[in-house]
Design a protein around this nucleic acid. Sequence first.
DNA 1: TAGGCCATCTGGTCCT
DNA 2: AGGACCAGATGGCCTA
Length: 203
Amino acid sequence: MIKLEPIELNKNCIVANTSDISTSMSHSNPMKRWRNRFNSSNTNNTLTQSSLTNQLISTVNLENEEHANLMIISDDDDDDELSNSQQSDHMDEEIPLIDQHVSSKRPRLSYNKRLVANARERERVHNLTAAFEALRRVLPIYGDQSKLSRLSILRIACSYVYVLGVLNEIDFSEGENAYTLHESFHMLSSTIAHELKRKKFTK
DNA sequence: TAGGCCATCTGGTCCT
DNA sequence: AGGACCAGATGGCCTA
């Protein structure tokens, strides 16, 4: 019997795959690490590695990412997409103690809980990226600024805030050296020039 | 090809 | 207990 690996969440689709399909993924396949670890502690596989070359890919196009998330969540949901495969039942179990870090306070998350946590982390980072994008849009840079790195965005934003503070006569001198308006403008322009030059060099 | 940057996963810690 | 946050690891993409 073909034993499917757990589904993976792509941008817009879910891919049910076997172990060595990972190379076909557009991005790296970090879940492979988890699977490898999981499989290493489960030696009674019903499928040999060689037979995995018979890949079974079932791609389900989803209308949006929220839908995709709904497909993988519900750790306790017996009716989820994984429940039809033989291994889904032990995917909901905590990993045996032998596979856990001894020093860890918490037991290693189950596969489905790990997926949910990954999704949360992904959303958190996406929010962070969106915030950087929002910050970038209000920076006083014209022209090609779309590829500013996060570090550059922060540096320019700091200089810009300083200029705005000086313009509004806000005293930044506590713990900082006080700059004149001319100096703060010069600091901003040199920061922008430096970061754009840096971008030009690295990109 | 090396280096910079970024997305993602992962486990630890903090906080509610 | 579980979510939020963080840092390290990893790998892909892009550019010089």
